[in-house]
Amino acid sequence: MGAYSNIPLRERNIVLIGFMGVGKTTIGQLVAKKLYRDFIDVDQEIEKRHHMSIPDIFEQMGENYFRKIERELIVDLCTNTRLKIISLGGGAYLQEEVRNVCLSHCIVFFLDLSWECWKERLPLIVDNRPVLKNKTLEEVEQLFFQRRNVYSIHNSRVLTNNLDPETAANEIVESIKWTWEVYEPNE
């Protein structure tokens, strides 16, 4: 698991990845509560630190600036904190440095959702996702599958198609506890 594999599994941050709108924040908050950990939504943290919404940062400073501050924050969280549940924005994991630091320091869960199920959520999320702005459904579908290829590099996957957030969170918690028992039984 990379240079910092000496971090005990029980202390590693748990990182949730997946396409925008799959429920990373909602499920992450539930997982945090169940494991008595702090929850950090990277997008919300950026908005708090910069006193601007993500769409405003995209509009005023550009996507490159956003990706830079996003990467810096994630690298900092992964290398300098433990025992957190961290939800990444949909595009963050596309950055190689972000992927590498998450995989070497944390436990990465991919919240997967089929295109058919995700498409039903589009009207609810399109307005506050700058990456979706002015895109056709075909372009969004292409983005969905491009990103899904990158998300396939993870430690564990939860298919959320027919799961409510509570059930998805329970699956993650059970998986984590099982991993702790198998790989660190004497802790």
Rank of each mutant, 00 (worst) to 15 (best):
G2C: 01
G2Q: 00
Y4V: 15
S5L: 14
S5D: 12
R10L: 14
R10Y: 15
E11I: 11
E11S: 15
R12W: 05
R12I: 03
G21L: 07
G21P: 01
V22R: 00
I27S: 00
V31F: 06
K33C: 10
K33N: 13
F39L: 02
F39C: 05
F39Y: 10
Q44A: 14
E45T: 10
I46Y: 01
M52S: 08
P55I: 07
F58L: 07
G62C: 12
E63S: 05
N64Q: 13
Y65N: 06
E70Y: 04
R71Q: 14
R71G: 07
C78A: 14
R82Q: 15
I85Q: 06
I86L: 09
I86S: 01
I86W: 03
L88H: 08
V101Q: 00
V101H: 00
V101N: 00
V101Y: 00
S104K: 11
H105E: 12
H105I: 11
C106P: 02
S114W: 07
W115S: 04
L124R: 08
I125Q: 01
V126Y: 13
D127P: 08
N128E: 08
R129N: 05
V131D: 04
K133R: 09
K133L: 10
T136R: 04
L137V: 10
E138R: 09
E138S: 12
Q142T: 14
F145C: 03
V150Q: 05
Y151P: 00
S152R: 09
I153T: 14
S156L: 13
T160D: 06
N161E: 06
D164P: 10
E166V: 11
T167F: 09
A169S: 06
I172K: 01
I176K: 05
K177D: 13
K177Y: 11
Y183D: 09
E187Q: 08
